[in-house]
Amino acid sequence: MEAERRGRTDGLGSVIRRHRRWAPVVVLVLLCAIIAMVNPRFIDPFNLVRLLNAAAIPTVLVMGATFVILMGSIDLSVEGVLAVSAVLASAMVANNFTSADFGLWAVPAGILLGLAIGGVNGVAHVTLRIPSFMTTLGIGFVAVGVATAILQGDTVRISDKGFRALSLERILGIPAGVWIAVAAVLVALFIQERTRMGRWLYAIGGDEATARQAGVPIERTRVMAFAVAGAFSGLAGVMAAAQLGQGHALMGQGRLFVTITAVVVGGTALSGGVGSVLNSVVGVLIVVVLFNGMVLMGLPPFAQQGVQGLLIIAAVAMALDRSRLSFVK
């Protein structure tokens, strides 16, 4: 009888363990349910569209951040790359700062600039053997500095309607920015699942020494991951410019910690090797829903940070799959 009972609890334990990877989704659903019960306006179509719109840029940012974090590294240059790409894009379309009017060419230009800065991150990190934390922190400072130096504190105002449509135009009732984010997720998912680079990221994050023995080109993969992360940040910069209709050096402020929090809340381990871009999408939705819910419940702005902190601890505690982590740093 004793043995039978233990057998049953073991069974329950293994069921939970097997479905542990769904924990972030459960957290998200619970969160939505609670907020909708307290304030039914949460499930109003207007609010849902607003939610998706708020999630679009963070979603693009976490795609790159997830790749870097899967390797056990970190990218702190997100805010700088976003700002400098936004400034470039806004200066390339019709605006009040330059006489340029290249229209939608600003989009690939912004992405390529991000890719290049990300590549610099990767090359400096790998060749100088500096921790990515410091490399990307330094390069992030440089990027914000370049944007500041070019604009001397000014703001570029965009007058190009076609460019702004990238964020504001509605397709099937949903803003175009959201569709761009969906496309970014599909691209990231393809890279993660269907390319060698994607698989190598897991190998490096899981155990770099073993991956090297197995012939994984560590340095090249690392540089590529940082470059791809930079490209996503660059795209996010273009989207931010289109959404706000302007470009300035502080566009990225506050984006960095939201990005990393979303990645971790989604269940990707900072130690590397465990996680997925889909986890990070769920992570972004958790963070955005949380924020939206607090606003709907009328929490004063200064209290939101505190509540967000407590709920993020709770969400990570519930969602993080620790079965493959022997210790937590």
Partner: peptide, 13 residues
């Protein structure tokens, strides 16, 4: 067993 990166970030909020 939350990474210190997140726990201290949350505490700062």
């Amino acid at each position: 067993r939350i990474p210190s990166f997140i726990s201290t970030l949350a505490v700062s909020g």
